[in-house]
Design a protein around this nucleic acid. Structure first.
Lengths: 205, 205
DNA sequence: AGCTTTTTTAAACAAGTGTTTAAAACAGTT
DNA sequence: AACTGTTTTAAACACTTGTTTAAAAAAGCT
């Protein structure tokens, strides 16, 4: 009844690395087993199938993806600071896990990857009250009147894309990975500055 | 000696659709053949191997990817308008070809996809003189002093990510594809407004 | 017409795929 | 010790993969 936790976790961690690096279609069950130092049959013994193991990894990645977002939204601060910290946290999260956005978007794109309601992200965001908070700030003239939908895209674009597109942009600018990462650390300040000053324009009069 | 152009192009077009939709690892030679309404052997008769056919498609996509960028940079306008039109063109291009960025970044990410110098994008951008142009504008105080590296990332982030992330953001906001596309059309104005007013701050005094 | 070259097809190849089976190794209990 | 259930392994399953072969069909040419 009590499964060997060590073996199961070893396989799961190996699967996480391989799936995230190569995607579902880009790797085989045997590759995951080898990465874990195990037999192929053992992978299916613990997780029944490649697809089932993948769903596990994918949904966990999705959860991680949304966690920092939600906890910042629910924090007790004024909206302006909240969004600033949100951007900062998001940027830091993707600096630490740069492969996550490409993985999630890539797998959501291919057909047959059913996620659907399951997570109910929208509802969980709504429950933080951030939508009304933004509306109030906009009514009061403290914030530019933009639908929160667009605000989220602006922020996600600037926090995720720079990490997703590393191989492309490295190719364009012909710089090594370390130099790229250093530049992205500086880029963070630009993003915060640009987005915040757009959302909360300070009338200089 | 004169190959049947029709057949070859039919296969190439089918390969383009399938590769871009599913990626190199996500499809088979037989799937491409079927999409083209041909035999598997015929694919290899014209293109020798799946990998060779892929390289063809990939490099062509890369070229398309850079074309509009370069021609705007070389256009005879003042820098501010040039960048504005650049953003607009980029946004329109990805609205028309929303799968391209994910395809390129995804394939550049997996190992074994050698592209390297081949294109020399950096040099081609340099030849348009946009770098010096930006430096001049910055010296003259007409433009915020930001390395062009960061400017490009800002623009690419906001022009590409919204289209790449469609399945993810649709999931979050629970809206159908048509509604999403309509919203993205509006989003364009925000992007132009935000980026341009950040790069070229108008002192309101 | 017949002959040559190009295009297309069906079939085969070895290697790799996800998954299952059945037996072995292990651990725990009495 | 023998019997328990759990964990691990090697081997096999049927099927798909990329690629090649060899023959058929079509097209070109004199």
């Amino acid at each position: 009844m009590c499964k060997n936790k060590s073996t199961e976790e070893t396989i799961r961690d190996a699967a996480r690395r391989v799936f995230i690096a190569k995607g579902f279609a880009g790797c085989s069950s045997r590759e995951i087993a080898k990465e874990a130092g195990m037999n192929v049959a053992l992978v299916n013994y613990y997780f029944r199938s490649k697809n089932q193991l993948f769903q596990l990894i994918f949904h966990a990645a999705m959860e991680d993806f949304f966690v920092s977002m939600l906890e910042v939204f629910a924090a007790p601060m004024d909206l302006e600071e909240k969004l600033k910290i949100f951007i900062s946290n998001e940027y830091d999260f993707f600096a630490k896990h740069p492969e996550i956005p490409r993985f999630i978007i890539g797998e959501l794109t291919r057909e047959g990857c059913e996620f659907d309601e399951k997570a109910a992200i929208k509802e969980r965001i709504e429950q933080t009250g951030i939508f009304q908070e933004a509306l109030q700030a906009q009514e009061a003239g403290r914030m530019r009147k933009i639908d929160f939908f667009h605000i989220m895209i602006l922020i996600m674009s600037n926090c995720q894309y720079p990490f997703m597109a590393r191989p492309l942009i490295q190719q364009i600018h012909e710089i090594p990975t370390e130099a790229y990462q250093e530049k992205l650390a500086l880029h963070k300040e630009l993003v915060i500055d640009m987005v915040m000053s757009y959302l909360f324009p300070k009338n200089k009069n």
